[in-house]
Computed example of a mutant assay.
Amino acid sequence: DWNYWRMQGGADVGQRDSGLNFSDPGQLLDAASQGLGIALVAALLARRASEAGLLAPMTPQTVRGPTWRWLVHRDSRNALAAGFCAWLCENLGVDWQPWR
């Protein structure tokens, strides 16, 4: 969110503390793509809208997002779940070591 952006030294791009607020990143991207304001989203989520020319970065600056964790139930540790985890990490550009 914008508070995190500011805490990490993000540039002032005219953001406001009031206005529309979306908990769903898809709705946020749709609203920004329709010209309803600026959006703070992960580059991965905005890639398609950027490639389509609907969105453009307001600044070249980025900030590292919070550290995320995922949980897989022990009964779901199978080849299908491992394949999904590997695919997700590959598409996010992060290393993943299969569980032991």
Rank of each mutant, 00 (worst) to 15 (best):
R6P: 00
L40A: 05
N3H: 12
A86R: 12
L92S: 13
A46E: 05
M58R: 06
S50V: 15
S18F: 12
P60K: 09
A82D: 14
G65C: 12
L80F: 13
T67M: 14
E51P: 02
F22A: 01
T67S: 15
R69M: 12
W96R: 08
Y4L: 12
T62N: 07
R64N: 14
A56V: 08
R48L: 11
S50Y: 09
P25H: 11
L80A: 14
G19F: 03
N3A: 13
I38D: 00
R64H: 12
G19K: 02
E51D: 15
A81W: 04
Y4V: 04
A39E: 00
N91W: 09
D1C: 08
G19L: 04
L36S: 11
M7H: 05
G9T: 09
P60W: 08
D12T: 03
V72F: 05
D95E: 14
G14T: 07
G10F: 04
P98W: 08
W99G: 09
A79M: 09
P98Y: 09
D75C: 06
D12Q: 07
A81I: 03
D17F: 08
A82T: 11
R47K: 14
L88G: 01
G35Y: 06
M7V: 03
P98L: 11
E51S: 14
D95R: 10
S18E: 13
D1W: 01
P60G: 10
N21V: 05
L20W: 04
G26K: 05
P98F: 11
A52G: 08
R16S: 11
D24M: 04
L71T: 06
V63K: 02
A52W: 01
L36M: 14
Q97N: 06
S76T: 04
A52C: 03
F84W: 12
G65K: 05
A39H: 01
L88V: 10
N78D: 15
V63C: 12
G10Y: 03
G65S: 14
A32F: 00
G35D: 05
P66D: 14
Q34E: 15
L44S: 15
G93D: 13
D75F: 06
P98M: 11
G19N: 06
W87K: 09
G9K: 10
G19P: 01
A81Q: 06
A31V: 00
Q97I: 02
G14A: 13
R69P: 00
R16D: 03
G37T: 00
W99R: 08
T62S: 12
